[in-house]
Amino acid sequence: MAISDFKLRNEGTYLGFIWYLLNPILLFIILLLIFQDRLGSGIESYGLYLLMGIIMFNFFQKTSLASTKSILNNASIIKSIKFQRKSIIISVVIQNILEHIFEIIIFTFVMVLYNQSPLGMIFYPLIFIVFIVFTYGVSLILASLTMYFHDIHNMWNFLLKLLWFATPIFYGFGGQTKLLIFNLINPLYYFIKLSRDIVIYNTMPPPHTIFITIGLALISLLIGIVVYDKLEKRFAEML
């Protein structure tokens, strides 16, 4: 399923995966050029700080958005074969993991460019696994709700745009308490902060951040499964 999805998306473009990478990389370069000396001036290794934020947000954004469409895109399969429909969403997640791996490789290169030892990356997979669980839960919720509300996709797209600006991806807090308070309820903030602390700055983050991320992941997974199980029964006839 993941393979077929991948093929489908790459249809017609031989080097299709380059397109996935181009988007975050271009964004990275543009933001770096614009903000390096302004918003980023007070931040240590701003380039890495920025890139880490971009690729993690990118993973979350692409996976959750794609999952809102995934059930509708597979309508004919759902209507004609009985199978575990969760696998559709799992395949979306897997595909985005594959794409994220390319981004991680690029990130490691950039680390070397910044004269930083890429050793910190060893811990990244651990954080990423927790992040995957979190994203999967959110995707399950969104995918199930989309069956009942067709405009979830648009709404989520809009919310993600807001989230992109609200999360400290290309800036640091620098004493803006309102933003800080908002981000205390922003799950993405914890994941991104944790990765930056460990991978880029090689500091041990306060243990509560770790517990919060794991807790968030479990809660999202739990809600995702409950919502999905409740709504899944009528998927086929809503298509």
């Binding site: 399923m1 489908l8 004919s76 399969i77 004609s80």
Partner: peptide, 25 residues
């Protein structure tokens, strides 16, 4: 179960990929 002619096929995939997809389902 087999319903109609479009047995969950994906139009933008090749026959080979469709065979793999549907069989795995």
């Amino acid at each position: 179960c087999l319903a109609g002619h479009n047995n969950g096929f994906k139009n933008r995939l090749t026959m080979k990929d469709n065979i793999h997809l549907v069989c795995s389902l």
